[in-house]
Amino acid sequence: MSISPSLLAFLSELKQHNSREWFAEHKASYESEKALFDGLIEQLIQEFSAFENMDGVLKKHCSYSLYRDVRFSKNKDPYKTWFSASFSEGGRKSGYMDYYLHIEPGGKSFLGGGMYNPTPEQLAAYRQEVDYNGATLRGIVEAASFVELFGQAEGDLLKKIPKGFDPDPADEVYLRRKQLFYWHHFSDKDIVSPDFTSKLMLSAMQLKPFLDFLNATFFDKEPFLKA
């Protein structure tokens, strides 16, 4: 299954005319595109269930609203200009590190995941795990197959290693992390191709060991094994 070219066209138009008046005139187009995207989400829940525990997860647990909360934002545009969903055990509000799918025209679509907005407790647990077990993390995210798809780490860094650590030099950059996430971008041609879902799931399986590492660190959670 792929993304409809008409979804990209709708989102491009929405970016140019991000107003309630324009949206009201094109509400039928939005509802049609949303129905197609919901169908993709339902398919992906089934695909992810091959290697993640998706029991009880429905599309409403994965999808995000197009409507923006502008109450505390300087940007008062009422709508997002992308469609998105995330996939994990328990759905996007479970707290688990998840697979985030972002669909936006202009080559801005991606699959990503990782430690984007960690709590202080999660950061402390992460740094302790890197101090104890940094070689495991490096073995995942520095593997050639991982780097080929996801490139280098994204996110903010401390200028110095936090106090109390005397790390292996190879772990220094990971201990300085305030955020640690990765994404693989897809071109517009990629996402409208018939094999998009297959490519997406291959990327997800490559991302899985990294998310398993974080979830084990934060939640003492063993990787899911399909019976």
Rank of each mutant, 00 (worst) to 15 (best):
F48Q: 01
K163C: 03
G39A: 09
V192I: 15
F51K: 00
S145K: 11
E154F: 04
G151L: 00
E89V: 00
Y126L: 07
L200Q: 00
G139I: 06
F48W: 04
E21R: 15
P169S: 10
Q152C: 00
R20H: 15
F213Q: 02
I191M: 12
G139W: 07
G134F: 00
P169Y: 10
K15W: 02
F224R: 05
D166V: 11
K208H: 12
D156I: 06
Y79F: 15
Y67I: 15
G90F: 02
A135Y: 05
K27H: 13
G155I: 11
P5M: 06
S84M: 11
R176G: 05
A135V: 08
S63Y: 11
G90N: 03
R71Q: 11
C62G: 11
E121R: 12
L180R: 00
K15G: 11
E89H: 02
K159D: 15
A85Y: 02
N53L: 00
L36I: 04
D166R: 14
A153F: 01
F165M: 05
F224D: 06
S73M: 09
N215H: 09
Q206N: 13
A28H: 05
F196E: 04
R92H: 13
D212A: 08
A227G: 11
F181V: 01
F37T: 00
G107P: 08
M201Q: 05
Q122A: 14
V147K: 13
S88H: 02
V57H: 01
A50H: 13
L225Q: 13
S4K: 01
Y126V: 05
E121S: 13
K74N: 09
K60N: 14
K74G: 12
K27M: 09
E31I: 02
Y67T: 14
P120D: 10
A170G: 09
K15R: 15
S198H: 07
A170D: 15
K108I: 03
Y67E: 12
L44N: 05
Y182F: 15
W82F: 10
D131L: 04
P120G: 12
S49H: 06
G114R: 02
G90M: 02
Y67H: 12
S94H: 09
F72H: 08
E129N: 10
P120Y: 11
R20F: 08
A124S: 14
D131Q: 09
G56A: 04
